[in-house]
């Protein structure tokens, strides 16, 4: 990832039981979607903390997509509702810090919705491409960001 690369890099946090399975199905079904996403599998979107999203942006991600189960069908009952609140708070924080909140989005897909997953990825890539590269990575590349990091997430 570098500032000269015009292709946006999007970190996609996918829950194991739905979104990751949908992404897997999209692959098995040979569905085409832009290769800009870097999938991080999470046991549940409820595991995702606000600082996961913040650190992704700090490390130079142009966008972050959080993909969880459809509302009401979380394997852990309420994980995706927790994630929804955290994503909204993180969007507020990003806006306060001067980044466009549209760079962070949460979507809900079932394990069978590979088409929907591919569509959400296309939408996200389109949104982030319109916004342009993240201003955070203008100054710093990912190695420096990692060096700077202290605290809970290393």
């Amino acid at each position: 990832m570098n500032a000269n690369n015009s292709e946006p890099v999007i970190v996609a946090f996918c829950c194991h039981y739905c979104a990751y399975a949908a992404a897997d199905l999209a692959g098995s079904g040979r569905l085409q979607y832009p290769p800009n996403i870097r999938i991080v599998r999470s046991p549940c979107t409820g595991r995702l903390e606000i600082n996961f999203f913040m650190r992704a942006f700090e490390a130079g991600a142009d966008g972050v997509l959080v993909a969880g189960c459809e509302e009401g069908s979380c394997h852990f009952k309420e994980g995706n509702y927790l994630a929804k609140g955290r994503v909204n708070t993180a969007r507020q924080l990003l806006e306060e810090a001067g980044l466009e909140p549209e760079r962070l989005r949460m979507v809900n897909v079932s394990a069978a919705s590979s088409q929907k997953f591919a569509e959400y990825v296309r939408e996200m890539v389109e949104t982030v491409s319109k916004l342009g590269p993240s201003p955070v990575k203008k100054i710093i590349d990912i190695k420096d960001a990692n060096k700077e990091q202290t605290g809970a997430i290393q």
Binding site: I50, M54, L93, G98, L99, E148, T150, A152, I153
Partner: peptide
């Protein structure tokens, strides 16, 4: 600890966006 991490991240992002050169520990 968690909120310190979040606030620090937000400050680092703000610093880079606004060119403030903060070094946050």
């Amino acid at each position: 600890e968690r909120e310190v991490s979040i606030i620090s991240s937000a400050l680092r992002i703000a610093s880079r966006v606004q060119g403030l050169n903060f070094k946050i520990d």
